[in-house]
Design a protein around this nucleic acid. Sequence first.
DNA 1: CTGAAAGCGCTAACAT
DNA 2: ATGTTAGCGCTTTCAG
Lengths: 342, 342
Amino acid sequence: MRKRILISDIAKSLGISVTTVSFILNGKAKEKRISEGLTKRVLDYVKKVGYKPNQLAQSLRTGQSKILGLIVEDISNPFFSNVAKDIEKIAYDNGYHIIYCSMDNDATKAKELIQLFYDRQVDGYIITPPEGLEDTLSNLNKNNVPLVLFDRYIPTLETHYVVLDNFKGAFEATSHLLANPQNKKVGYVSLYSNQTQMRDRLEGYMKAIDDHQQQAYIKKIKIDEEEGEAIEQLHAFMHDNRLDAVLFATNYLAIDGLKAVKQYGMNLPHMVAFDDHTLFKLHEPAISVVTQDTSAIANELIHTLLNEIKGKNKELQKIVIPCELQVRGSSVISQETLEQTS
Amino acid sequence: MRKRILISDIAKSLGISVTTVSFILNGKAKEKRISEGLTKRVLDYVKKVGYKPNQLAQSLRTGQSKILGLIVEDISNPFFSNVAKDIEKIAYDNGYHIIYCSMDNDATKAKELIQLFYDRQVDGYIITPPEGLEDTLSNLNKNNVPLVLFDRYIPTLETHYVVLDNFKGAFEATSHLLANPQNKKVGYVSLYSNQTQMRDRLEGYMKAIDDHQQQAYIKKIKIDEEEGEAIEQLHAFMHDNRLDAVLFATNYLAIDGLKAVKQYGMNLPHMVAFDDHTLFKLHEPAISVVTQDTSAIANELIHTLLNEIKGKNKELQKIVIPCELQVRGSSVISQETLEQTS
DNA sequence: CTGAAAGCGCTAACAT
DNA sequence: ATGTTAGCGCTTTCAG
């Protein structure tokens, strides 16, 4: 932590001008036809004394902060924190830093965060948009702020985005449950939400149900529903309808479902959840899931954003990542066994 | 996202000088004896046009970035992410922002991150130090960089820190297990680590064991041990010693232990884990834990750091947060019942 | 090839 | 009480 050394110190020590040093440091040595000897001498000296440019001054001057803003629904959800981790790593490797925040599906908070990031002059945004953010995002878009949406998108907005193949995921999960002749009544638990990922998952479920000519049982929970209330509603839903199997639209809904089963001493219905969680692997029986390849998502997100910043995106990137159904005990063990276990 | 408006624009529009505006904006109105009328007029105008100072320029000028660096062991561990969330909130309320990173208990990575934060001129650090970081931290300390350690501390270093009462937590948990006459053999699973929190927990375990004049069974796992290997070792430890009960030093060790039990179809021993986890509440039986009050920790951390930044800490803050034993099924259900269940 | 100098937007010492 | 102005450290135009 030696005291900070300035570009002018370097110039002085080497008996040359700051301009020259700056050019060399910014890789414009040959463009400016600075001799290789000098270039090397400067670079060596810089390394020797461990000079690091003052990023603040650099940013103020160039208008580039080299900071990317990541706004996710909830950083403590393992799905989002895993994506964040990967994004962070790739960003670092490209000389960028990430500032991340949770917006808890609250449009007001999201707007504040975007404003905050804007004030901090972040160079680009990755956002999982809550409902009600259309105008703000549209504004960013109009101002040519680099922006990539993720997990869900705004249909009316022409932005880059990276999402899951939610329809297919829900369709396959539901079909899988229906394939078991034991399962007559297959329900679906989702959120009161018009977000695209929720709509697509619902459609996937409906398609599978329709293909099998079964009745649909759909329960929606309020996004900010209190836990106890949600558990109660889920219990009522599963119990009153005597459901054989349930597909849960998110990992935390599934967790609430498990809590309901436990609290009310119910038999565990066959089930599949969206997005994996440590808990699901250890649960007895283990919970089947539709998983997302988080590192693939992170990769697409960050590269799309960086390309946008560099102006290299020829066209709008609408990226759909395939997802995978991982069948575990919760959707295959026979109903009798289940009844004994729970 | 209207185009950025400058302090000079305000001065011009109002027909006054930038100094006056700057003084008013920085709350020095009365100190500089600026008339209340003008003050109000400026403030109102600022609000009306939505002026926000350019933080970059502000930082460059004042040398204060209003950014705090938070380096934790692993942001995807719910314990750390919960603390981070609370810290973030309090920091925001005080006009600070948080940049957080995981260092995965890797001293090299931690050093890089500290350097990175230093280059970014963060105003202060909150760090869970891995082993081997003594010198770097000592350097920060010598340079009067505001710094608070957390979760563990470096005994040879005179820094502020906020830690748990680990000794007491481990002692009580072990005593609780030993209080059950069924439990003759109570083991302890920890890490190869000399970090203070690990040492204190071990001592707490030993004290309880000694008080009961029992034999100690201690298994340490390598910090970066591969999961499969760790599970195997835990199985061997519990099985070969025919342990009645086990105390786990961290939540992820306990999770590995549960995986071992499941994989090898063992009977679940009585158990207690450090640091709660969603999984523990839903597990059958629910897992007893020694919990930390994350929001109390976050509070102490951020306030100590902010006071340090403002030079308000008269003396070294060595804060020890009490912890609480939450008894759940895993440490009370009779051994017979457990054998049936698992 | 290299140097002088003008700013990026803001704060605060100095002047009035 | 309020205005003038010199930087914070860097990049980059313009002149050599």
